[in-house]
Each structure stands twice: as structure tokens, then as C-alpha cells.
Write a protein that binds this DNA or RNA. Structure first.
Length: 454
DNA sequence: TCTGGGGTCCTAGGACCC
DNA sequence: TCTGGGGTCCTAGGACCC
């Protein structure tokens, strides 16, 4: 289908020059997918997240929101507000499948789009002048296709820049007001009057990049609304927020947004982390690192990438957290190689303290085949142990390749659980499939037993 | 029994090179 | 003999986004 067949109609709304940016946001994405695939959930309060003591809500249906359930909320709190809440653990393969379908529909309109997570895109339509595209009809047609083909709803903001487009997609959506669902228009165009009103009325917290910490800092300066930002000097803002954020917020306060729509963003890091139903100590942490290293290395191989930097992150029971990283002169994607580096990094961490979260991350990607470049600089090993781990991991990177490829092949054919190391078969590993958002209720109930000790 | 897991970007200090 | 400033890379931590 050619864009010109669908996306334009007469001369409704602003021209492309006036409002070239679209922000498209799928409604309550994860929760909506659960309802889509299980119609018995329709009309009920549904959320996706971890159901256990340490779980949080990742996505809540509008019915759940009527009870005050929001994403990011601890599941315990959510259940207190809504005892009938159905919490599903999340099915990321399915969400990714629908996300691809979503992007396919967007691509029929333009290839100049930037994906933000699985359920949002910014589009830059400014190159579509020759096709006679008008942004508002294009947005309506896009939304109609999402509804018809995916059976999911979305809100679309149409504006001059990303700042207003993002605010507008929120305006386009349905919302809960005083416990009642109020339908939104679906597509919302930000004209000059609306821009001026929003800049005058919105709190700073509504801006992209202003979270709890920055809002608190601004609050101490007496800056609570966007309009307040316009009257503070750039030097003052920089002194408190640093040059980058200060510059961004100064622009926003004037209604300007220098950020372009960047198509084809490539991931720069990849990782796997888990909050445990029961905190781990000592060898249990190392065992968990082995499982995590396996997840990360498999993801690297699926992407045909090698990582030059491996890092671990640890959060203790008192919520203090730390990270340790090691860059290599070569790239790795091997389970054992990544595990050995993670293990070496953890040797420098006091694991006699209770560890509630462990993460293993990979970054500094090389395409496969580039592994032997970058030999010119020295690896800064912290000590002899670490150096030995590095040497060994490099040898293993070569030695284990054949075995690893064979194991990958088996996993591909029979599923991830078909071939596992003995150490992955304990409770640690069985928690993996339960939820991406922390331990589930079953993990909570058998938490006393803990993972097996070897 | 408060606060996940996937990421991105920024900052700051130190090492090293030119 | 003392000392410069820019650039890049690495590490650690923090804030933010969905």
C-alpha cells in the first residue's frame, strides 16, 4: 500500500511544515496483550508484573487504573488497592512479536521513525511533502490500522517537535478521572495556543528527563512549573543540574526541542538481572552469576555480537548497590568466558552481605569477526587473579566454541531448558521462567527453602 | 512485606597520548 | 625543568525512560 493512498485526505489540520512529528503510544501495552490473548480477562482489572513480595507492576489495564494501580507500583500495594487484580507474569516473546507488527504498520507510513521500548515510536514525516501527506489524517489512518489489524488501541500526538508530540499522545489517550474512565480523542494535534497553555501550566515533572531527583532539586530552587524554568539563568541551572540537562530543560521551557528522530538506533548494551525471592549469600551469588552469564551470552550470539566489556551489578538487602566492570582487548560471547569474568569481578565484592539483586551486563559490541581488532591497548587488570581470569577466558573463547555452537543448536531445537548445566537446574534456574518482574507468588511461598547449595 | 528489568545518557576522575 | 590542554578510554555511580 502506498502512503499516498491512505495517509492523506483533503487539507485537514496543520501542514507537514507546521507539525511534522508524531508520537504513537500503544495503550497499556503488556496488559492489553494479556486481555487480547485471554478474552476471559476482558473488563477485569489486569496487570503484568511480579506478583511476589518484591515484585512491581509493569503495566496496568484501565480497569486496574480505576483502583489506583499504576506501573512501577509494588505489587503488594497494587493488590491492597485492588484485591481482585489479576497479575500475569509477562510474555516477552509475544510482546516483541506484536511490537514488530506495530513497527511494520508504522513503516508503511515512514521509515523515519524511532522506537522507544516496545510500545512507542516517534515519526518524522517532514520528508513526505511530495506525497501530499497531512499529519493529522495520517495519524488517524495509522491509528485505525493499529486498531483494525492488532486489536489494540493507541494514542497519537501530532506536533512541531518531540516535546509536544509526546505530551500530546498522553492527551490523546483515555484516562481515569476520579475513578471513572474518560475517553480521549485518539489523535491530538498541538496548536500554538495549546503549546502556550502547556508551557504556562505544566509542572516540571511532566517534562521528559525530569524524574523524582531532578524535580526535588528544582523544587528546592523554587522551580515547580515549566514556566519557572524560563526565568532562571542558564548559569544557575547549569550549576545545579549540569550542562546537558540544563541545556535540555532551557530549550523545553521555550517550547523548543533540539532532539531529532533517530531511525535505526542500535542497542549499545545488553544484560540480565534478577531480584531474588530470598536474598543470596556467597557461593549462591556465584551460581546465580553463572545462570545470568548464560542468558547474556546466548543473547549476544543470537545477535551475532561480541562484547568487549562485561559488568556486574549487585544490590544488597539495605538497597545499597554497586557495579564492577572489565573491558577486554577482545570480544566475548561464550558462556564460560563471560561467567569467568563476572566471577572475577564478584571476587572483589563482599558477598557475605545478603544480595537481593544480581545483574550481568555486556557492552562495547563488536560484530562477530571483529574480535581480534583492538589489541593495541593494554588490559588494565586489577590484580593477578583478574589477569588470570582474562587469559583463561580468552583461551576458552576459542576452545569452547565448537561445544557451545552444538549446545546452542540443541537449545534452538528443543528449547532453552533441554540442555543445561547441572548448576542451572536448581531452584535458581527455575525462578528464571516465572517472571521478568521479580519473583512470583510461588517463589515467595517456597522462599524459605532457598536455592540449592553445592 | 514497598519499590522490577530492559535499557539510555551524563558526570567525574584517572590514565595515557600527543 | 616545569608544565599546558585536548582527546580518548575506562570505571563507577546516578538519574531517567518505558
Amino acid at each position: 500500500m502506498k502512503p499516498s493512498d491512505t495517509w492523506n485526505s483533503a487539507s485537514e489540520g496543520p501542514s507537514l511544515a507546521e507539525a511534522p512529528i508524531l508520537h504513537v503510544d500503544l495503550d497499556a501495552f503488556f496488559a492489553s496483550v494479556e486481555v487480547l490473548d485471554d478474552p476471559s480477562l476482558r473488563g477485569r482489572p489486569v496487570a503484568v508484573g511480579g506478583a511476589g513480595a518484591r515484585g512491581v507492576i509493569a503495566s496496568a489495564s484501565y480497569e486496574a487504573r480505576r483502583y489506583g494501580v499504576t506501573s512501577g507500583m509494588p505489587s503488594v500495594t497494587a493488590l491492597r488497592r485492588c484485591s481482585g487484580l489479576v497479575i500475569r507474569p509477562g510474555r516477552f516473546d509475544r510482546y516483541e512479536e506484536l511490537s514488530r507488527q506495530f513497527r511494520g504498520i508504522v513503516e508503511d507510513l515512514t521509515h523515519r521513525y524511532e522506537a522507544i521500548g516496545l510500545d512507542e515510536v516517534f515519526c518524522d514525516l517532514s520528508g513526505l511533502v511530495r506525497l501530499g501527506v497531512r499529519p493529522v489524517p495520517a495519524a488517524r489512518a495509522l491509528r485505525a490500522r493499529v486498531i483494525e489489524e492488532m486489536h489494540l488501541d493507541c494514542g497519537i500526538g501530532v506536533a512541531r517537535n518531540k516535546l509536544f508530540a509526546k505530551l500530546a499522545s498522553r492527551e490523546a489517550k483515555s484516562r481515569v478521572v476520579a475513578g471513572e474512565l474518560v475517553a480521549g480523542p485518539g489523535v491530538f494535534y498541538v496548536d500554538h495556543e495549546t503549546e502556550a497553555r502547556w508551557l504556562a501550566e505544566l509542572p516540571v515533572r511532566a517534562l521528559w528527563g525530569v524524574g523524582p531527583a531532578t524535580a526535588a532539586k528544582l523544587g528546592q530552587l523554587g522551580l515547580t512549573h515549566v514556566r519557572d524554568l524560563a526565568r532562571v539563568s542558564h548559569a544557575d541551572l547549569t550549576a545545579h543540574l549540569g550542562p546537558a540537562l540544563a541545556s535540555t530543560l532551557s530549550s523545553f521551557a521555550r517550547g523548543e526541542d533540539p532532539r531529532e528522530v533517530v531511525a535505526d538506533r542500535r542497542a549499545k548494551s545488553l544484560g540480565h538481572e534478577q531480584t531474588f525471592a530470598r536474598s543470596l549469600v556467597g557461593d549462591e551469588v556465584i551460581a546465580a552469576a553463572r545462570v545470568h552469564a548464560g542468558v547474556v551470552s546466548r543473547a549476544l550470539r543470537e545477535r551475532h555480537q561480541l562484547a568487549r566489556t562485561i559488568s556486574v551489578v549487585v544490590r544488597f538487602d539495605d538497597r545499597e548497590s554497586l557495579s564492577r566492570s572489565q573491558s577486554l582487548a577482545f570480544g566475548v560471547d561464550d558462556d564460560e568466558a563471560i561467567f569467568r569474568i563476572a566471577e572475577a569481578l564478584l571476587a572483589g565484592v563482599d558477598t557475605s552481605r545478603a544480595v537481593r539483586l544480581l545483574g550481568v551486563h555486556a557492552s562495547g559490541f563488536l560484530a562477530r569477526g571483529e574480535s581480534e581488532v583492538q589489541l593495541s591497548f593494554a588490559v588494565a587488570a586489577a590484580d593477578e587473579t583478574r589477569q588470570r581470569a582474562l587469559d583463561e577466558s580468552r583461551a576458552r573463547q576459542v576452545a569452547h566454541a565448537a561445544l557451545r555452537d552444538a549446545v546452542d543448536e540443541v537449545r534452538r531445537r528443543y528449547g532453552n531448558e533441554a540442555v543445561s548445566r547441572a548448576s542451572e537446574l536448581g531452584e535458581l534456574a527455575t525462578q528464571r521462567g516465572r517472571s521478568a518482574f521479580g519473583p512470583g507468588l510461588d517463589a515467595l511461598s517456597d522462599g524459605d527453602e532457598g536455592p540449592d547449595r553445592r
